[in-house]
Amino acid sequence: MGTKRLAMGVDGGGTKSDAVLVDETGTVLGWGRGGTGQVFWAGQRGATESYSNAVHAALGEHRPDELWVAGLHINVFDESRLPFSSLRFVPAGELTRGLATALETYGIVVLSGTGSFVAAKKEDGTTLTLDGLGPLLGDYGSGYQIGLAGLRAAMASPWGSRRRTVLEYLIPQNLPVESMQDIFHWVYYDRQASRADIASVAKIVAEAAEQGDRIAQEIILNAADDISDVLADLIEHLGLESCDYPLVASGGVAQGCQMFWDRVCERALAMAPRLRPIRPSVPPCIGAALLALKAMGVDWTQALLEQIEKTLTAYKQTKD
């Protein structure tokens, strides 16, 4: 299928790598997913394979004369399928991808997915990122932190009435175990509990919190407070207390858990009342695609973003 110019956005996180292919009207033509694209978790070969799986699935049978790619820092394209001469790589870090999902070019991004960080870009181009240090040294308010706290709470649930939580029953239903007793072996003996596996428990904790489970709510709010403390450091460092900047959510936890995001916004607005909270409904790879489109000369509009979101949903439905 020959199309003159297409854009591809790529986002590699601690659990998965996503790629999306769009045309200049914002119509989604392809979507792909691979494993983690982070080298220090997957190794160079594993990260390359993850990106390759995602981008080639998104590309499918499309063979554009020009492919503008944003968010990919290594060339994983097969030249026999797409000549390297047709590729145009566009710089797109996690901060700029996050801002782009809200059609913004400066502001603050609060990312909580498998890992976490808080970053900002000022109007004068000054940037600062805090955290992103991984589960041992940082990742405050991350999915990993929430998931680990959820596992601990579920294990302690039988100890007494004040520790009772539905997580004791919900977690085994969503992990490759039959009961909470198997969690101990899964973690310590089988050694099959990866960082991504533990972070995946965050979604279960968030669902329990929304259902009113007190322990789950405490875990979510504590995580939101932890990342808000990092946000406070960033605001102080850059002197953003009086700035009218967008505050953009990014990552599965920040974008997917209303309770978490509400708490972050409450804390943020107490520090900097003029911030404008935005929780985009599209994933970060769409932000990368928007940056690629912008590099191609396509103007950012709300209609363009809505077209991408609508056709992405439709495309995924055809693949289910």
Results as ranks from 00 to 15, higher is better:
residue 264 V to H: 10
residue 111 L to G: 07
residue 146 I to S: 06
residue 27 T to Y: 06
residue 291 L to C: 06
residue 236 E to V: 12
residue 102 A to T: 01
residue 126 T to V: 14
residue 76 V to G: 04
residue 275 L to Q: 04
residue 122 K to Y: 08
residue 169 Y to H: 15
residue 168 E to M: 07
residue 20 V to A: 05
residue 261 W to S: 03
residue 194 S to W: 12
residue 219 I to E: 10
residue 105 T to K: 12
residue 157 S to M: 12
residue 168 E to P: 08
residue 314 A to M: 14
residue 252 G to A: 10
residue 195 R to M: 08
residue 65 D to F: 07
residue 73 H to R: 11
residue 88 R to V: 04
residue 109 V to L: 06
residue 180 M to S: 02
residue 122 K to L: 14
residue 169 Y to V: 10
residue 101 T to G: 12
residue 253 V to Y: 07
residue 306 E to I: 04
residue 173 Q to N: 13
residue 266 E to V: 12
residue 178 E to V: 11
residue 190 D to E: 15
residue 192 Q to T: 12
residue 182 D to E: 14
residue 32 G to Y: 02
residue 111 L to R: 04
residue 205 V to Q: 09
residue 59 L to T: 00
residue 48 T to C: 14
residue 250 S to R: 11
residue 66 E to N: 02
residue 138 G to Q: 10
residue 244 D to V: 02
residue 270 A to V: 02
residue 196 A to T: 01
residue 207 E to I: 11
residue 268 A to P: 07
residue 71 G to D: 03
residue 229 D to L: 13
residue 85 S to F: 05
residue 26 G to T: 00
residue 260 F to L: 07
residue 84 F to L: 13
residue 217 Q to G: 13
residue 264 V to Q: 06
residue 313 T to H: 15
residue 140 Y to W: 15
residue 132 G to H: 06
residue 203 K to C: 05
residue 316 K to C: 13
residue 276 R to F: 10
